[in-house]
Design a protein around this nucleic acid. Structure first.
Lengths: 348, 348
DNA sequence: TTTAGCACTCAAGGAAAGAGAGTGCTAAAC
DNA sequence: GTTTAGCACTCTCTTTCCTTGAGTGCTAAA
């Protein structure tokens, strides 16, 4: 059977109507929406065809039609009109991204909340480095006999620091030696390699310095490993409860638990600026009845973030896609503008 | 009318039964649970009295009895047997607090999740300084001509640092002057005062240094203000959906939105190690039908944290109280052990 | 003061009936 | 061949009514 233009148009109407009302769409309503150029009986014939072809489903014999995942897919690929954001909306997005440039994590979690509250679905957000994070530079600042501050600059120019308590007193004069050693042997290499090298220099360094050295490396390894593992933040899960498809507490609970406990299995496509996954296209079982829209944004050169929203398959794809890519652009701009000064290597 | 011992015992049975089943408790069940020493008819008489006295309520004429807030209050104050944690439970709590001592924020949010998942109710957690945070020491590390790292140690010995981009080139030789200035004029004072002093020194400092100085102070003010404002983390809101009193999506949504949006109005008592607020004893409207149990824990000398759980008035107060104080103790121990080295002032 | 007995109340659950939305099919019209 | 009007049919949803059963309140006796 052929998918005529009229069939497509009807499909479009069904999808858009159903997205709004969450109620099966009847032939009469479709006829009305199409301007009365054809009668409801004609529509009925077409609808029957569309059901046969798998684009629509019928909850029961005497109900209207509901789009199938295949129907949504066609809609998203061909029928949907790409929406443009209104100036007001763009304005609002940018406003909600007027974040002080603090720590990356914090910015991200705030952005996640902003996305969720603007799109009205639960959102998740993450920043992932394309490669393992390494240290670029170390510095030790003596505080007193018992403690010193370790400062580490990472590959992405973020700086982390902490107070270290010294187990053994260390002569302040020896600090520079240690810093030189740190910067020459422990920068630009993986955490495994750092541990390795620590072992290697063990004998060349006086014991009380070695203790401090290994504390420093332990700290560095911790921070680096945490930084290179993607942290996923979710926000706005409670938005689900407003949707008719999640009025059932069990369903809502299942999805919300998934969102808060098993974030790792949320879709993380590694290509393209935006991806839409409809119902069964999702791998995770918990998402089989939901759709996910994910967009990516850039953080400097070698990092990349993802923002996604999760909603019912009956999702307003056009609006969500438009807004989400608005946010992605906003974040790209945000990071491009303020962070990551020119990347000259500064190892001495 | 007098509150005889038997009445109290009956009240206790009603509360404990209702806590478990969430169903109104009938006279027959109570009689059975009391060992058959009295008949259900006698219980009925007593129940009628307890209703008159306001300790119990009757959903409708022919239903069993349900504790009123006043009844819960009496139960919590007098009747409840303080539970001790089993060794296994203590073990489990300590295990879940085996957190690497990273940034305070991160520890706290992880602890919040642990609390929630161990107690099975939504939890909130916060760390609040008793006083405004101040800077204790500054350091500037030149990176290259365009940037330097600012390191600041705060009053609680936490260290924060960030890369600053310089608008104007700064002579490296001049840095020490600036550091001395920072440490002599901008440590130990409020952020307002810092801004004030910045204005005062404006004329005594060469312009290109002043720019860097003001960037540094701006960063410091940001960090300090953020550190002294209580951040409240909530976790496990989805636990609500398992409870029969929140099967209704609207109710659940209302409370969950409150928990995620208006955290500031969660109960934050400033005295005593533990506080239990039952139903209408809560100030916030959104919590009028729920109970809150809050415990406090210590972080070093001048900071103090709060963990609370939110649940239905029908909450297993004995267990929750025991577990929560187990967590509070665990956190106190955690912070006492690792953080905050001896507090000698190290300003030069 | 306690208890047995009994009539009474009320929510919850199920069956039956009616309403309404929408379909599928047929036969006529274009 | 396609479109349309007409009509019987199907199925859900809502309402109503009835039944059931847990639990009470009251009375009178122990």
């Amino acid at each position: 059977m052929e998918l005529t233009d009229r069939k497509k148009q009807i499909l479009k109407v069904v999808v858009e109507d159903y997205i709004q009302t969450a109620e099966p769409v009847g032939s009469k309503a479709i006829a009305a929406e199409m301007g009365g150029s054809v009668s409801s009986a004609t529509i009925r014939n077409e609808l029957a065809d569309l059901v046969d072809m798998g684009y629509l489903e019928q909850p029961h014999t005497s109900a209207g039609r509901v789009p199938s995942p295949k129907g949504y897919r066609l809609y998203v690929n061909e029928l949907m009109e790409r929406q443009k954001l209104s100036i007001a909306e763009t304005e609002k997005i940018n406003q909600s991204l007027q974040l002080k440039m603090e720590e990356l994590d914090r910015v991200i979690s705030q952005a996640g909340r902003a996305v969720s509250s603007f799109i009205n679905y639960p959102a998740y957000i993450t920043a992932t480095g394309k490669q393992k994070m390494t240290a670029r530079r170390f510095e030790l600042l003596p505080v007193d006999e018992h403690s010193c501050i370790v400062v580490m600059m990472m590959g992405d120019n973020r700086v982390k620091s902490q107070l270290l308590r010294l187990q053994l007193k260390v002569d302040i004069e020896q600090m520079p030696t240690l810093v030189t050693l740190l910067n020459s042997h422990f920068t630009g290499v993986s955490t495994d390699e750092m541990n390795q090298r620590l072992m290697n220099v063990a004998e060349q360094v006086p014991p009380q310095l070695f203790l401090l050295l290994s504390q420093t490396i332990a700290y560095a390894v911790d921070v680096l490993e945490e930084a290179s593992q993607r942290e996923i933040v979710t926000a706005g899960a409670n938005q689900l409860l407003k949707l008719p498809e999640f009025r059932d507490a069990d369903k809502a609970h299942e999805l919300m638990s998934f969102l808060s406990d098993s974030k790792e299995s949320l879709p993380m496509p590694d290509d393209g600026p935006m991806k839409i996954l409809i119902g069964p296209e999702n791998v995770s079982d918990a998402l089989k009845d939901t759709s996910v829209v994910v967009a990516s944004y850039d953080i400097g050169d070698d990092m990349r973030g993802l923002i996604g929203v999760v909603g019912p398959t009956r999702m307003d794809y056009a609006t969500v896609a438009a807004r989400l890519s608005g946010f992605a652009d906003g974040l790209t701009r945000l990071f491009g503008k303020q962070e990551l000064p020119p990347k000259e290597d500064t190892k001495e």
